[in-house]
């Protein structure tokens, strides 16, 4: 008969395998079931915003539009907004919500016009900004005006009465024209219609 030392390890191993044959499939079954039993129920049909879908479908519009182009003299003109909605009854004219017009001239002159509302006339490539317009332009100019009319093909714009800061003082003017460079002259800001500038000298301490 084989010595008992040899048989015991054999009997213990066969018992371990017998247990394994039972426990391992059970563990597998448990793992598999978690995939089905605990999975989230699929979202019901009510979570699809049907109401908004109808509204979106009925009212043609573009959310967060962004149009940009380059003017003949190299000025890049970019118009972005929250929303662009065609105006009923007016062909190719769109209402713009929170429009933002940015122009950059080859010479490095930049201008950013932001407004509450606006209107884009496609064929005429004209943008009218209203509802309080803020114009920030290099160098160091920031003015407010009630409304602005901008030509999207050249990047030029004419404002209403303006007040704000010029590069060297507080300024008021009848209007401000943002003129693109005409090849020879660089782009410039032309305050016109009567200008008043107030400058406060920064007197250094050791003045006379």
């Amino acid at each position: 008969m084989a010595e008992p030392g040899f048989r015991i390890p054999f009997r213990r191993r066969s018992r371990a395998i017998a247990w394994a044959k039972v426990l391992l499939p059970l563990a597998a079954l448990a793992l598999l079931s978690t995939m089905f039993l605990l999975a989230r129920a699929p979202a019901g049909p009510d979570s699809i915003p049907f109401a908004r879908l109808e509204e979106i479908a009925r009212e043609p519009r573009i959310d967060r539009p962004r149009l940009s182009g380059v003017a003949p003299d190299g000025t890049t003109v970019t118009l972005s907004a929250d929303r662009l909605t065609p105006l009923p009854g007016r062909e190719d004219v769109y209402a713009v919500a929170a429009p933002r017009l940015e122009t950059r001239t080859p010479g490095g002159g930049t201008a950013t016009l932001t407004a509450g509302t606006g209107e884009v006339d496609g064929p005429a490539r004209r943008l009218r900004l209203a509802g309080g317009v803020r114009v920030e332009a290099s160098p160091a100019t920031a003015v407010e005006t009630p409304e602005v009319t901008a030509d999207l093909s050249t990047g030029t714009a004419i404002t209403g009465p303006v007040t704000g800061t010029a590069p060297f003082g507080a300024i008021e003017a009848g209007w401000l024209a943002l003129e693109a460079g005409d090849g020879a002259g660089a782009a410039r800001l032309l305050f016109d219609g009567g200008v008043r500038l107030l400058y406060h000298p920064q007197v250094t301490a050791e003045g006379p």
Binding site: R188, F191, D192, V195, L197, Y199
Partner: peptide, 15 residues
């Protein structure tokens, strides 16, 4: 003393 300048127009070259 503040300096006040009034004129018909003011032109600022952006470049």
């Amino acid at each position: 003393a503040p300096v006040e300048v009034t004129a018909d127009s003011l032109s600022v070259d952006q470049a």
